[in-house]
Simulated scan of single mutants.
Amino acid sequence: MDTTKLTAFAQAVGADIKEVKQSVSTKVETSAMTQAISQAVTQAKTEVKAEILGEGTPENLDTLKEIADKITSMGDDAGGALLGKITEVSGRVDQIANVDLVAVYTAAKA
């Protein structure tokens, strides 16, 4: 898997974090920054989860454990079903890895 885009994203985030750290001491209280970071992390986790699971995923299948339990309970064809799910998840991970996160991040902070 090509990691060039992920590396560029990490470098862009690192540069912005460095800039934020330099200005945070004079512009923002620590508690306000902590709250903003917490909200950003929560939003990012929600977006990644939604991207991985896709639209319309039932609530009873929104964790890997629930998916594994469902596959196990499917009976004799559990092996084939598991392979199918792994292939599907792998495809979604590849899609996420190919997203130009630098462009998305730059657009979001603009």
Rank of each mutant, 00 (worst) to 15 (best):
A8P: 01
Q39T: 05
A15N: 14
T34H: 06
V99F: 00
E47W: 01
Q39K: 06
T4D: 12
V93G: 13
L61M: 03
T46Q: 11
T34V: 06
A36G: 00
V20W: 02
T57P: 01
Q39I: 04
A32M: 05
L82Q: 07
A10W: 04
T87V: 11
A8V: 06
T106F: 00
G75Q: 04
K85V: 14
A40H: 00
G84H: 09
T106I: 08
E51S: 15
A12S: 14
K21D: 12
I71Q: 00
A32Q: 13
Q22S: 12
V99G: 03
T34L: 08
T42P: 01
D69A: 03
T87D: 10
V28D: 00
L64E: 03
T7N: 12
T4I: 10
A107F: 01
M33V: 09
I86W: 02
V20E: 03
Q35F: 03
D100K: 06
D76Y: 10
T72L: 03
G54H: 02
D16Q: 10
I52S: 04
T7L: 10
Y105R: 08
S31E: 10
G56W: 04
V41Q: 11
L53D: 00
G14L: 09
S31N: 11
A97C: 04
A50H: 03
T57R: 13
D77V: 10
A36H: 00
L61Y: 03
I71N: 02
V28Q: 00
T7S: 12
A40T: 08
Q43E: 13
I67P: 02
V48I: 15
K27W: 01
T34A: 10
G14H: 07
R92H: 09
A8I: 03
K65M: 02
A78M: 09
E47G: 03
A68G: 01
P58Y: 09
A32T: 11
G91K: 15
A50I: 01
I96H: 07
K18W: 07
P58T: 06
I67R: 07
E55K: 15
S25Q: 07
Q11S: 15
L101Q: 12
Q35W: 00
D16N: 14
S25H: 08
K49T: 11
V104Y: 12
M33N: 04
A10D: 15
I86D: 05
K85L: 07
A103P: 05
S38H: 03
F9W: 11
T106V: 12
N60M: 02
G56R: 11
